[in-house]
C-alpha cells in the first residue's frame, strides 16, 4: 500500500507548489510533479502480485495489467505537452512584463487598469 500513500503525498506536494508559488516557472514544475504523481497512482493499480512485465515470455503465467500502462503513456505525453505550452507562455510573459513573478505581473496589470479607468 506504500505506493498509494506515496502517490497521495506527492500529489499534495505538487499541488501545493502549483497553487502556493508565485513564480510561473516553478508553478509549471509543480504541475509536472503533480501529474507525475498521478502516473504513480495509476501504474500502482496495474501491479499484480508475482506478475511480470506485460510482454509475452515463455514460462511466465502472471502478467501485470497493461491497461494502466497504456493510459499513463498517453498521460505522460499530455503532461509534457502542457509543460511545453506553459513554459513558452512563461517566456512570453517574461518578455512582455519583464518578470515571471505572479505578484509583479498582477501589480503591472492593476496599474494599467487604473490608467484606463482614469480616462483614455
Amino acid at each position: 500500500m506504500y505506493n498509494y500513500w506515496l502517490a497521495v503525498f506527492l500529489m499534495m506536494a505538487g499541488f501545493y507548489v502549483v497553487i502556493a508559488q508565485g513564480n510561473l516557472v516553478k508553478k509549471i514544475i509543480g504541475l509536472g510533479m503533480f501529474q507525475t504523481s498521478v502516473f504513480i497512482l495509476y501504474v500502482s493499480m496495474g501491479k499484480v502480485e508475482g506478475g511480470s512485465a506485460p510482454i509475452v515470455t515463455e514460462g511466465v503465467e502472471v502478467y501485470s495489467n497493461p491497461v494502466p500502462h497504456v493510459l499513463m503513456l498517453t498521460a505522460i505525453v499530455v503532461g509534457v505537452a502542457t509543460t511545453a505550452v506553459g513554459l513558452s507562455l512563461a517566456v512570453r510573459i517574461n518578455e512582455a512584463y519583464g518578470s515571471v513573478e505572479e505578484d509583479d505581473i498582477q501589480e503591472l496589470d492593476d496599474e494599467l487598469d487604473k490608467i484606463q479607468e482614469s480616462g483614455l
Partner: peptide, 10 residues
C-alpha cells in the same frame, strides 16, 4: 492564458 492553463490543468 497562463492562469487558464494552470487552472485548466489542475
Amino acid at each position: 492564458a497562463f492562469q487558464y492553463l494552470i487552472m485548466g490543468s489542475i
